[in-house]
Amino acid sequence: MEIKQSEFTISAVKPDQYPIDQRLEIAFVGRSNVGKSSLINTLTNRRKLVKVSGTPGKTRLINFFLINNEFYFVDLPGYGYAKVSKSEKAGWGKMMEQYLINRPQLKKVMLLVDSRHKPTGDDVLMYNWIKHYGYGVVIVATKKDKLTKNELQRSAKVIRETLSLDKSEQILFFSSLKKEGKEELLQEIFKDISMEENLEDNTEV
C-alpha cells in the first residue's frame, strides 16, 4: 500500500464526534514521548501532518486522518506523562475506553514502545487492554537508529518477555529519523485488511 494522500479530518473526545462514514480505522498509541507523531508523518510522507510537540503529554484528543480517501489513521492520546493530574489520567482512560468499546471500524492497533527501554507498566496495561477488546495489535519499537545490532536483539527479547508476546507476534523496529522499517510497517498495517470491507456509504464527515 502506497500512501499518496493524507489529511486531518477531525479531533474528538467522545463517540458522537467520531467520523460516521464507516471507513476502516488503524489506530496508533503509545507513551507521550515515544515518537508517535513523527512515525505517522513518516508513513504519510508529510512532515507536518501531525504536529510534533516539544511538550510530552500535550495531546488530549483522538485525531482522525483520512488516508488515500479510503481509511483513517487514528492518533490516540499519549499516556504515561508524569505531570498529568489524576483527573486528567481518569479522563484519558474513559476517552480511550469509549473508543475501544464497540468501534467496528477499528481493525488494528499499532502499539509503540521505545526500543531503548523496557516497556512500562502503562505499556503492558495498554497491550492487555487492546487484546481484551479483541483488536489486532502490532508492536512497533521506535528509535531504532539509537541502538546497535546487538542492542536491538536484546531490546526485542526484553519487549517480548515484558509484554508476554506469543511467538506468532512480531516486533517491528522503526526509525523516523532514518525512515528505517517504513515499508515493513506499512505492509504489516494493511496485512489481512481489505479496503473492500468499507461500507458503501463513505460520505465525508
Results as ranks from 00 to 15, higher is better:
164 S>M: 13
75 D>S: 00
73 F>H: 03
153 Q>P: 00
111 L>F: 05
88 E>F: 00
193 I>M: 06
122 D>Y: 10
9 T>H: 03
151 E>V: 10
134 G>Y: 14
159 I>D: 04
5 Q>W: 11
45 N>E: 15
76 L>Q: 00
180 E>Y: 01
21 D>M: 09
155 S>W: 09
48 K>C: 00
17 Q>W: 06
175 S>Q: 12
119 P>C: 01
79 Y>N: 03
172 L>H: 13
8 F>W: 00
197 E>L: 12
169 E>Y: 05
90 A>M: 13
181 G>E: 04
130 I>H: 01
78 G>Q: 07
183 E>L: 09
90 A>F: 05
58 K>T: 11
40 I>G: 03
96 M>V: 11
201 D>Y: 07
187 Q>D: 10
194 S>T: 08
139 I>Q: 13
40 I>R: 07
36 K>T: 04
41 N>G: 04
204 E>R: 08
100 L>H: 08
74 V>R: 05
194 S>N: 12
144 K>D: 13
193 I>C: 00
126 M>H: 01
181 G>F: 12
178 K>D: 03
23 R>G: 08
71 F>R: 15
149 K>R: 14
46 R>K: 15
28 F>G: 02
113 V>S: 08
177 L>D: 05
170 Q>T: 15
88 E>N: 01
116 R>C: 10
30 G>L: 02
166 D>Q: 13
157 K>T: 09
93 G>W: 07
66 L>C: 04
205 V>H: 13
111 L>I: 09
42 T>A: 08
166 D>N: 15
74 V>D: 12
144 K>N: 12
63 N>V: 08
169 E>I: 09
153 Q>E: 10
138 V>D: 09
190 F>Y: 09
135 Y>P: 04
30 G>W: 10
